[in-house]
Design a protein around this nucleic acid. Structure first.
Lengths: 216, 216
DNA sequence: TGGAACACGTGAGAC
DNA sequence: TGTCTCACGTGTTCC
């Protein structure tokens, strides 16, 4: 802001004040005394160096001033922390629902709507317990998650059922782990079948659950 | 680490040196002069406050000393940057190959082997161009990626082919986007079919490509 | 005791 | 002009 916006060069001109000796006894003796002069010098250099190092680690620098360096470092740390938090959260989301796929600009809406459901908590205890989750994420789009027992041909059966129900599959993800299957999918009702009030979510869920439970 | 390991309290005792006036002309006049005394005081307080704020933003603090605060901040920023980089990388990996699933301890190996391939670059320009990528990621496990044109029933056909080839599907992900389909999958050869020298990668790739190209 | 770290007041340069 | 920031040397306090 003000003047001296750059670090002054350490002038190091020994400008030791020359004041003549006096005959006082409480007077501040200034002939030449330096108990810790050089130590202090080293300390200052050290701090200066650290500050420059800090500055070099911070991408944006508003001012060369000491306080500004520290201030910028603080804001940068804040940004980094926020970044880590966001990335970490997104990573967890992806680990728990790997079928999240960018498609249109409605992506953000989809995500936030997912958040409002208690999907994440439920997902953690995905034992062998059979479960079907279905929620609307767009005009004709739905998000679907099925956990069930690992059975031969169950995926083919799932595909058949989706075709029967008139769902077009936008994206789908299947994962098997220790005898269980997890299916995540975004689906879309075929245009001809869209009759205003759309699908009965509960009914469809029950149907899917029943099909998954039935033995081949 | 030595003495004064805590910031001294600003004592503010006006210990203005009382030196009697002299009759010299170049002498440093020390009656009481303070052109910018208070401004300097404010500046120091400011820096002090910033440093304390910086300290409060850094979780681990080895020492209360000024230089240490800055030093710790630097190392912390380094950690955060590394963290962001790692998370970002992992996130991109997941976005590009969402079928990565924790199953055994071989997970790390799978990841690194994926990296050695030029999968990532190729994935970015996934036009409509048909492509099949297949690589071995374990004793009996393979990683598979197919990009092709969006055609009705192609996914069912894919499932049939995999069954025909004797591949058990561990996890699979399908994504559609503007007329194209992307399939990522980890598959495993059924135990009975594992005959030492395993599968011919090139041959299987060609076969898959041909099937994908053929019209239904 | 001596080394380390601090706050202080000051002169000087930059704008 | 004044105001800002800097480096400097010092006294002091804490281990």
């Amino acid at each position: 802001m003000g003047g001296g916006s750059i670090f002054q060069e350490p002038v190091r001109i020994s400008r030791r004040r020359q004041v003549r000796r006096e005959k006082e006894e409480d007077e501040v003796d200034e002939n030449f005394k330096s108990p810790n002069l050089e130590a202090e010098r080293r300390r200052r250099e050290k701090l200066h160096g650290r500050l420059m190092a800090l500055r070099s680690h911070v991408p944006i620098v508003t001012n060369m001033t000491k306080a500004s360096i520290v201030e910028d470092a603080i804001t940068y740390i804040g940004e980094l922390q926020k970044n880590v938090e966001n990335l970490s959260e997104r990573l967890h989301e992806m680990e728990e629902a790997p079928c999240e796929i960018a498609e249109e600009e409605t992506d953000q809406i989809i995500k936030s709507e997912h958040e409002t459901l208690d999907v994440k908590e439920e997902m953690k205890k995905l034992g062998i317990e059979e479960k079907v989750q279905l929620c609307k994420i767009g005009e004709r789009k739905f998000w679907l998650k099925i956990t069930t027992e690992k059975k031969a041909g169950i995926f083919t059966k799932f595909m058949e059922v989706m075709r029967f129900l008139g769902f077009e599959i936008i994206d789908i993800s299947l994962t098997t782990s220790s005898g269980a299957i997890l299916i995540c999918s975004s689906v879309q009702i075929l245009q001809g079948l869209c009759d205003g009030d759309s699908v009965d979510l509960e009914q469809t869920k029950e149907f899917l659950l029943e099909v998954m439970r039935s033995n081949p």
